[in-house]
Write a protein that binds this DNA or RNA. Sequence first.
RNA 1: GGCGCCGUACCCAAGUGGCUAAGGGAGAGGUCUGCAAAACCUUUAUUCAGCGGUUCGAUUCCGCUCGGCGCCUCCA
Length: 454
Amino acid sequence: MLRLYNTLSRSIEEFVPLEPGKAGMYCCGPTVYNYAHIGNLRTYVFEDILRRTLRFNGFTPFHVMNITDVGHLESDADEGEDKMEKGARREGLDVWQLARKYEQAWLDDMARLNIERPEVICRATEHVQDMIELVERLLERGYAYAANDAIYFDTSKFSDYAKLARLDLRGLQAGAGGRVQLTGEKRHPNDFALWFTNRPRHIMQWESPWGRGYPGWHIECSAMSMKYLGPTFDIHCGGVDHIPVHHTNEIAQSEGATGQPFVRYWLHGEWLLIGSEKMSKSTENFLTLASLAEKGFDPLAYRYLCLQAHYRSELRFTLDALEAAQNGLRRVYSASPERETLNDPSAFADARAEVLAALNDDLNVPQVVGLLNRYGSHRLWLEFDHVLGLDIAGRTAPDRGELPAEVAALIERRNAARRERNWAESDRLRDELIAMGYEVGDGPTGTTVRKRPV
RNA sequence: GGCGCCGUACCCAAGUGGCUAAGGGAGAGGUCUGCAAAACCUUUAUUCAGCGGUUCGAUUCCGCUCGGCGCCUCCA
């Protein structure tokens, strides 16, 4: 039985899908105006673990993820500058080129982290018509009103508005340093734009029944998730930051349009911290996967680090912690299949059940990893690598390709030196091989050389 | 101003109202080795920020204090 923490109820619930054997999930994807940082990536790793866990439990996931390639204003304030436009100017590209460039960079990062590709990856710019239709329905049903600068969602018409985030709307308005307030032509402070109009300086614009304009930043997720998954679907994921605004607004506009419950299980991933603070683009205290690779780290070492903390806990990232993860992963890869510790079928079955119970307890992957390390069974690691995604089978395969001729020659020279007990020359050649990324070991059965797995 | 989270060994990090407080890394010792590396074995918190309370019993529940942080605004 798979149990998941549902933000909606603030409790752990048994996962029962709408349709037996299936699991529909929608996860908020990247805004493609810059590289993703490893904090963003942590959330995608969590979502990947979730989809793999669903499948491990016999559910067939149908996973939808969006690409936000539509520009949005930096803030609700009228004069905010759009991130896409800002990025395009920075790089001397047009906004469309910029979006494609960072979409590809993001896909590359996902692949390097061994994150499975969702069944649907959808671009906001290719679903503008769906968004327009959704806004029309909201207008028809009286949940939206047209002003000069935008079509707004009327939060006063939606009684459950604060449900997900358990917002204290009155409290929000009382303080917040004046940040929650009436801007533009909104009727209520919490109202939000569904479709912007009369903003001639904005580059990305589309025709609509209300004139040229562009979508508000929440509407794409409602339009695309319901298009591919139906008005009600199983799981919606994202970072914890999305609870109070983005997901709250998604629920309002989706349920307002359909009159049906939107999402059954809401799951949110916690922050990656750096220097005890949230990793964030705006404060520039962030790292990319590429920058870690430059420092010699394997992307899967970062994945392994993520797996050692629970998705609902903040993870304090340091290079030391990453190095510890990489060292630990190296040992997982070098565990010898010949020394299997769980040969007895019933012992294996018991261990498997114990690990699965930990996994199904709201994805307690740190517990899973702990148990796998304790059992030290190669078979059990391989079994759960379907969920962990550490490519253990690939990295431990004995036939990792022929050694390059250059390497083979060095080994031959070293063997000759060793036969002559020329230790100085032998050690020098060994250092050379190590520098080239190989592990060199002299044992009773001779010398073994292999590429370092991590 | 409102809402909320966290504080477990040198580092990262699970966990529980009562069995030895997981696991990984690092450190220390050992086996092996020409020396190493890798691997393997052993070892490292009488204690869970502090102080009170509830309880037969609390690290785990409650309260307070100290310290760190998040959201309410674009944000994974």
